[in-house]
Simulated scan of single mutants.
Amino acid sequence: MKKKKLKLCAKKGSWGMSRKRNSNVIKLKIPGTREEWLKDRNKGIGGSDAGSVLGLNPWKSAYTLWCEKTEKITNDTDNEAMRQGRDLEEYVAYRFVEETGKKVRKSNFSYQRKDYPFMLANVDRIIVGENAILECKTASALTKVQYKKGEIPDNYYAQCVHYMATTGVDRVYIAILVLGKGFYWYVVERDEEAINALISAEKTFWDYVVNDEEPPVDGSESTSNALLQRYPEGYGAIDLFGREEIISSIRDLENSKKSIEKQIDKLKNELKKDLGDHEYGQTNNFKVCWKTAKQNRIDAETLRKKYPDIYSECQKEISFRKFEIKEEDYEQ
């Protein structure tokens, strides 16, 4: 799905939702508790899921999302970033109103498409007098996204497209508070080509869910964590003779990785030799640093010898599954 260039100011839009789109939307009562809300999330694909379906969410893969929707793993985690996002939603909406002069109100409903009932939407605000909604975001100050240049993360864009596809609105305004750095807002206009591409991807994903068929895995940390949560323990052995090709590919790639790492280290050493006693070096395009850094670390061996009781008390057993490939010689 192609992401269109975003505009930093809003255009005057049409009044009221089109009748055809409106007739394709079902209004649902918003769950009264967070527990009910979490349970309802597994009944379909919401706006925050769209980026994962498309492989655009850096924190959650399509495979992880599938595991959650099919209840292979649990999804009841809550963290400080999520808490701040919820608590600051009202403030972000207020800033948007202050910046634009537009009026917004909360919706008393969630939304579902009739023809694609797996498509669900819980919107933050409705723009009064305009066929549009507002999405409120809170982002980390460490973000590398260049909001000043009109950029938004791809998964934010996917969420906006999902809301347009599900609710039938003409546009989505997105307001983003970057903690301690700035406030930005943009408008994502309706794009039928992007919407159709998203619907197709979400339908394919939801078919995996309803058929309890695993989607392809990727190499993300999210997928690795989902597999570990799904299979925390290992027992016995399994026949993998049909997977010789993939095992050989892993070994070949690992050998290539080692070779590349050696080449990188060689080039780094050449630059270190050039720097010598200097901490910095510059070219027209780059700055190279090789400076002394100090850290305080616990000497585990000294602690064990001098304070064995404390060392024993501080030890903690951890369990994990170690993945490795070994060559075996079998007699024919």
Rank of each mutant, 00 (worst) to 15 (best):
residue 150 G to Q: 05
residue 240 L to R: 06
residue 185 W to S: 00
residue 198 L to A: 09
residue 105 R to H: 06
residue 268 K to S: 09
residue 48 S to W: 05
residue 109 F to I: 06
residue 91 Y to G: 04
residue 217 V to Y: 02
residue 4 K to T: 11
residue 230 R to G: 14
residue 298 I to D: 04
residue 164 M to K: 10
residue 117 P to W: 08
residue 53 V to H: 07
residue 124 D to P: 08
residue 37 W to G: 07
residue 92 V to Q: 14
residue 322 K to R: 10
residue 299 D to N: 07
residue 241 F to H: 01
residue 101 G to I: 10
residue 135 E to Y: 01
residue 20 K to Q: 10
residue 302 T to A: 03
residue 273 K to I: 14
residue 301 E to H: 12
residue 113 R to Y: 09
residue 89 E to K: 15
residue 274 D to E: 15
residue 98 E to S: 09
residue 121 A to E: 05
residue 254 E to N: 09
residue 165 A to V: 09
residue 329 D to H: 14
residue 39 K to N: 15
residue 286 F to K: 11
residue 240 L to Q: 12
residue 298 I to C: 05
residue 267 L to Y: 15
residue 104 V to F: 07
residue 156 Y to R: 01
residue 91 Y to K: 14
residue 321 R to Q: 10
residue 219 G to F: 05
residue 267 L to D: 10
residue 52 S to I: 00
residue 34 R to K: 13
residue 60 K to S: 02
residue 145 V to I: 07
residue 184 Y to F: 07
residue 125 R to L: 07
residue 145 V to S: 08
residue 272 K to C: 05
residue 232 P to G: 13
residue 243 R to A: 13
residue 144 K to R: 12
residue 43 K to H: 14
residue 85 G to H: 05
residue 196 N to W: 05
residue 310 I to N: 06
residue 62 A to P: 01
residue 262 K to N: 14
residue 239 D to W: 09
residue 82 M to F: 12
residue 8 L to S: 15
residue 171 R to V: 01
residue 168 G to P: 08
residue 51 G to K: 02
residue 16 G to I: 08
residue 146 Q to T: 10
residue 325 I to N: 08
residue 266 K to T: 14
residue 180 G to F: 00
residue 320 F to M: 06
residue 225 N to E: 11
residue 89 E to Q: 15
residue 295 Q to D: 09
residue 25 V to C: 11
residue 74 T to C: 10
residue 241 F to V: 11
residue 108 N to D: 14
residue 169 V to C: 15
residue 137 K to Q: 09
residue 209 V to K: 12
residue 55 G to S: 12
residue 187 V to I: 14
residue 314 C to R: 04
residue 149 K to A: 11
residue 146 Q to V: 04
residue 182 G to F: 03
residue 305 K to Y: 08
residue 216 P to F: 03
residue 200 S to C: 04
residue 269 N to E: 06
residue 64 T to L: 01
residue 266 K to R: 11
residue 151 E to R: 06
residue 331 E to N: 09
residue 98 E to K: 15
residue 273 K to E: 15
residue 306 K to W: 09
residue 315 Q to A: 03
residue 133 I to R: 05
residue 73 I to E: 10
residue 258 K to P: 01
residue 140 S to Y: 07
residue 171 R to L: 04
residue 270 E to N: 15
residue 239 D to P: 11
residue 270 E to D: 10
residue 259 S to V: 02
residue 177 L to C: 12
